[in-house]
Computed example of a mutant assay.
Amino acid sequence: MWGILSGKVALITGASSGIGAAAARVFAREGAAVMVTARRERELSDLVDELTGKGFEAAYTVADVTRPEDVDRAVSGTVQRFGRLDVAFNNAGLGAEQAPMHLMDDAVFDAIVDVNLRGVWYCTRREIAEMLAGGGGAIVNTSSVGGLVATPVAAPYVISKHAVVGLTKAAAAEYAKQGIRVNAIAPGTTRSEMIEAWFALQPGIEDLLHAVTPQGRTAEPEEVAEAAAWLVSDRASFVTGVTLPVDGGYTLI
């Protein structure tokens, strides 16, 4: 099988749905053996059955990225199953809960930051340790357009996604000479369970988002996954420390 990830071993977090599940399909199609992880086992099992049924190499492990022991098990399990870790897509995340900052519950802040920042921190550190032992690799973290611009009444989400950009830059600068590239993607409005629930709760919000997006539409998860696949591939070999907007031009305005 030939593709831009041919021969690579990939770990994908947040793979039970949305961008993560799409990335598993794209990475596998591009030649990678994929270990998918998330908290929902049934969805992971179904995804792996789908991929292996098409002749791809895939396995899963249930993990919560806010638990270091789970992250360690996911990385170790990838190496045990496929022999090494070449690329990682740290995609697990929690959506925004809307409330004015002065009324936001501390528990909401803690939950969002735990998944969106601390989870990426745990994953990136553990993956880097494995990649150092293996001679290099490439990591992509999922930020958001909310990590590049601010949106009202979503402060914890905006804070966490801006922090992912900083984490990505810090890791990229620190490990570039050791053969590890670290980049991020910043998706705009992308069809997912979370977004569909938001659209259902706030009729008209999709049209509003389209109006401020030059391409005037919602992205499909596969479109974001393709960008992540390119960034972890050798075709992006001189790209590190960037946050790539995949947003239909949203951040241009």
Results as ranks from 00 to 15, higher is better:
residue 99 A to I: 05
residue 129 A to I: 08
residue 159 I to L: 14
residue 165 V to P: 00
residue 164 V to M: 13
residue 176 A to F: 09
residue 71 V to H: 06
residue 90 N to E: 09
residue 171 A to Q: 12
residue 73 R to V: 06
residue 86 D to V: 03
residue 66 T to W: 13
residue 124 T to H: 04
residue 138 A to I: 09
residue 109 F to S: 04
residue 157 Y to S: 15
residue 99 A to W: 05
residue 116 N to R: 13
residue 134 G to M: 07
residue 78 T to R: 14
residue 146 G to Y: 05
residue 79 V to C: 08
residue 163 A to P: 02
residue 158 V to D: 09
residue 145 V to R: 06
residue 113 V to A: 03
residue 143 S to Y: 05
residue 87 V to Y: 03
residue 159 I to D: 14
residue 80 Q to F: 00
residue 164 V to A: 14
residue 137 G to C: 01
residue 152 P to T: 03
residue 69 E to Y: 04
residue 148 L to Y: 03
residue 95 G to N: 04
residue 82 F to A: 05
residue 87 V to R: 09
residue 132 L to E: 15
residue 172 A to G: 02
residue 167 L to S: 03
residue 85 L to D: 09
residue 80 Q to V: 08
residue 173 A to Q: 12
residue 92 A to P: 02
residue 108 V to I: 11
residue 174 E to P: 01
residue 145 V to T: 12
residue 172 A to T: 03
residue 128 I to D: 01
residue 149 V to C: 00
residue 136 G to E: 14
residue 150 A to M: 08
residue 120 V to K: 11
residue 112 I to V: 15
residue 85 L to W: 06
residue 106 D to Q: 07
residue 67 R to Y: 01
residue 176 A to V: 14
residue 166 G to C: 06
residue 74 A to G: 08
residue 149 V to Y: 04
residue 102 H to W: 10
residue 84 R to H: 10
residue 73 R to Y: 04
residue 155 A to F: 13
residue 105 D to S: 11
residue 164 V to T: 06
residue 73 R to F: 11
residue 130 E to L: 09
residue 83 G to A: 14
residue 73 R to T: 11
residue 124 T to V: 07
residue 145 V to E: 02
residue 71 V to D: 04
residue 93 G to T: 12
residue 68 P to C: 07
residue 94 L to R: 07
residue 119 G to A: 14
residue 84 R to P: 04
residue 164 V to I: 11
residue 162 H to W: 14
residue 159 I to T: 15
residue 97 E to F: 03
residue 129 A to N: 13
residue 127 E to D: 13
residue 77 G to K: 05
residue 105 D to V: 04
residue 143 S to L: 02
residue 65 V to H: 07
residue 150 A to F: 04
residue 169 K to N: 06
residue 166 G to E: 01
residue 68 P to G: 02
residue 106 D to Y: 08
residue 119 G to D: 15
residue 142 T to M: 05
residue 72 D to T: 10
residue 68 P to H: 05
residue 174 E to G: 02
residue 176 A to I: 12
residue 147 G to E: 10
residue 98 Q to C: 03
residue 120 V to T: 15
residue 115 V to Q: 15
residue 172 A to F: 05
residue 164 V to R: 01
residue 81 R to D: 07
residue 174 E to K: 04
residue 133 A to L: 13
residue 94 L to G: 04
residue 136 G to C: 12
residue 71 V to R: 06
residue 135 G to H: 00
residue 165 V to H: 13
residue 164 V to P: 04
residue 169 K to C: 02
residue 108 V to T: 12
residue 135 G to I: 00
residue 87 V to M: 11
residue 86 D to L: 05
residue 69 E to S: 14
residue 102 H to F: 14
residue 102 H to K: 15
residue 90 N to P: 06
residue 103 L to T: 12
residue 104 M to Y: 12
residue 92 A to C: 14
residue 110 D to P: 11
residue 75 V to T: 12
residue 92 A to R: 05
residue 119 G to H: 08
residue 100 P to C: 01
residue 144 S to I: 08
residue 173 A to C: 05
residue 67 R to E: 07
residue 111 A to H: 08
residue 139 I to K: 01
residue 77 G to N: 06
residue 106 D to S: 13
residue 122 Y to M: 09
residue 122 Y to E: 13
residue 100 P to T: 03
residue 120 V to F: 09
residue 155 A to G: 06
residue 117 L to R: 07
residue 169 K to Y: 02
residue 108 V to M: 10
